[in-house]
Amino acid sequence: MGLTAAEAEMYRLLIVAEAASAEEIAGRSNLGVPAARRLLLALEDKGLASAVEDSPDWYSAIPPETALVPRLQRQSDALEQTRAAVHDLVETYRRSAQAWSGCDAIEIISGAAALRQHLRQLQDGARHEMLWFVKARFLAMPPESNQEEYDALSRGVLYRALYEQEYFDDPGAVDNVVAGVRVGEISRAVPRLPLRMAIADRSVAVLPLNSADAPGALAASRRRWCGGAACWTRSSTCSSTTGRSVPRCG
């Protein structure tokens, strides 16, 4: 709403008091008189308080339905316009992006920096679950720099990770896994993993297009994954990389 935390608290105090001076506000809070006076003047500038007639240095709160509700509606309208604009951009991107193998469910990610950004956005957008296949020798994102995992865990996203045994030979790998487990990550180790992979909410996945794990050749599928193939399941079957039909994935 355009208010600082201190201004919002001052507005609440002024609503409860109906009218107050800086001295009275200071007596009801841990603010000094000069700070209370600056906040009252800030509220007046923002249209949330007005000076009391015939009472110098006293202010009363402008009712929320007058001061805040119209502002909230304007912001809501602006948000809807922004949402519509973003939707148009998404559709434009989908129409113009080059699809892999003629499938618009695939996006090619080229370069370590782009891959790192996609992995961060993947985690930021996760609402329920993140699944990982973690191999040794990271390509784009050092494990210790993955703050997005901690942010997602703190908002209730479930993290489940399979670590290849060789991963634990990397410097600091054990400490990174322990740190994740302490905040809620569910981790397991296996002798070997076939590929690197990250899946968000079982709907978006990032994995390499080749067995070399080259950072310049990775794909993100926006639907489901069937075995080793990236696919968009339009019906009960989809095509694998071998050209055969495979069952719908769960």
Rank of each mutant, 00 (worst) to 15 (best):
E18A: 15
A20Q: 01
A20L: 05
S21N: 07
S21A: 06
S21W: 01
E23V: 09
A26C: 09
R28M: 15
V33K: 04
V33T: 05
P34M: 03
A35P: 02
A35N: 05
A36C: 08
E44M: 10
D45K: 12
K46C: 08
G47M: 11
G47Y: 12
A49G: 09
A49V: 14
A51E: 15
V52C: 03
E53H: 05
Y59G: 07
S60M: 11
S60C: 12
I62L: 11
I62C: 05
I62K: 14
E65H: 08
T66K: 12
A67Q: 06
R71C: 01
R74K: 12
S76D: 12
D77P: 05
D77G: 10
A78C: 14
L79S: 13
A85E: 15
A85V: 07
L89W: 11
L89P: 06
V90L: 08
E91I: 09
T92N: 13
T92I: 01
R94T: 10
R94D: 09
R95H: 10
A97R: 10
A97D: 03
S101A: 06
G102F: 00
C103A: 02
D104H: 04
A105D: 06
A105P: 00
I106N: 02
S110H: 10
G111E: 09
A112M: 05
A112Y: 00
A113W: 02
A113R: 09
A114N: 11
R116K: 04
R116A: 08
Q117Y: 01
Q117E: 07
Q117W: 04
Q121S: 00
Q123L: 06
Q123N: 05
G125Y: 07
A126W: 01
A126G: 13
R127C: 13
E129R: 10
M130I: 13
W132G: 03
